[in-house]
């Protein structure tokens, strides 16, 4: 949590937008995930979001669904993804935020509470956690357990969220607030929605916490547009697609690195 806060503070002082690329843990395999984390850090990522694969990723479009399925087929589990993060922890300066659906977190311990997962996440160097199928209304258990391990909980705000919900989401989120740019699932889009600027501004008026925007941001140009109004930009599916299109592990790391460099120079 501290590392996440420090990152945002530093970038806020330098008036730069935070760039947050997303990779699916274990896609194409766990060793590549570890290499990707270091390569993306070198390419200019400020925070890296790592997905824990799940059999039923409800909030995800076809690209991340496929990545999740590939990772599971290759034997990725929540603990193995955490181990992959820990394996490069010594060289990582950027904070890692994990994204996981609720069920794998619940099943991590033997008592159905998220505590074991959060302890392990903390021990393996994770700074924050996004759980897309835990709405803020049901977030208490998660927040309490995360607070004990000093892991930031980040909730999702949608364009359809009414003002009182947006406020609750902003209040409950730590590190940053995740604004979902589209009504829908993750996935690259040709164009950003027309009401995006209004939505981000509305949320920013309600909170002093950084607002990062994700879902559907695919190109450096789109990332640049969003970076002008938001505090950070999250790019997932487009990067996952780049990795999936690679011919080898090395190629995947190189392509991902090139893509994040382009995003970096666009975001500023």
């Amino acid at each position: 949590m501290e590392r996440l806060r420090a990152t945002f503070n530093r970038l806020r002082r330098s008036r730069r937008a935070v760039l947050i690329p997303f990779v699916m843990g274990g896609d194409p395999d766990l060793a590549t995930t570890a290499s990707l984390l270091l390569a993306l850090q070198d390419a200019g990522a400020d925070v890296i979001e790592v997905g824990i694969p799940f059999s039923d990723p409800l909030a995800d479009g076809p690209t991340i669904q496929a990545a999740s399925a590939r990772a599971l087929r290759r034997g990725a589990t929540p603990s193995r993804v955490l181990e992959a993060i820990a394996s490069v922890q010594a060289q990582l300066r950027v904070p890692i935020v994990c994204l996981s659906y609720w069920n794998p977190i619940m099943q991590f311990g033997s008592d159905g509470s998220p505590r074991s997962f959060l302890q392990a996440a903390h021990a393996h160097g994770v700074s924050g956690l996004i759980v897309p199928d835990v709405p803020v209304e049901e977030g208490r258990v998660l927040q309490d357990a995360a607070a004990q391990e000093r892991i930031a909980t980040i909730f999702l705000a949608a364009p359809t969220s009414p003002p009182n919900r947006l406020r609750a989401i902003a209040r409950a989120s730590q590190g940053f607030v995740y604004y979902v740019s589209v009504t829908g699932t993750t996935g690259a889009r040709h164009a950003l929605p027309d009401d995006l600027v209004r939505g981000i501004r509305q949320l920013k008026r309600m909170t002093t916490k950084p607002v990062c925007v994700g879902f559907g941001i695919a190109t450096p140009a789109q990332a640049a547009t969003v970076a002008r109004i938001a505090d950070g930009v999250i790019v997932g599916s487009a990067l996952v697609q780049t990795i999936a299109a690679a011919s080898s592990r090395d190629d995947a790391v190189q392509r991902a690195s090139r893509f994040v460099k382009r995003l970096r120079s666009a975001v500023g």
């Binding site: 799940f54 059999s55 039923d56 409800l58 599971l72 589990t77 929540p78 603990s79 659906y101 609720w102 069920n103 794998p104 977190i105 619940m106 099943q107 991590f108 159905g112 199928d133």
Partner: peptide, 21 residues
């Protein structure tokens, strides 16, 4: 099944050891 969460409901669920459905 064992207790788990799928499709927005907590109930019993057929799942493997690590919570994949």
């Amino acid at each position: 099944g064992r207790p788990g969460v799928l499709h927005g409901a907590k109930s019993l669920l057929l799942q493997d050891r690590v919570g994949q459905v």
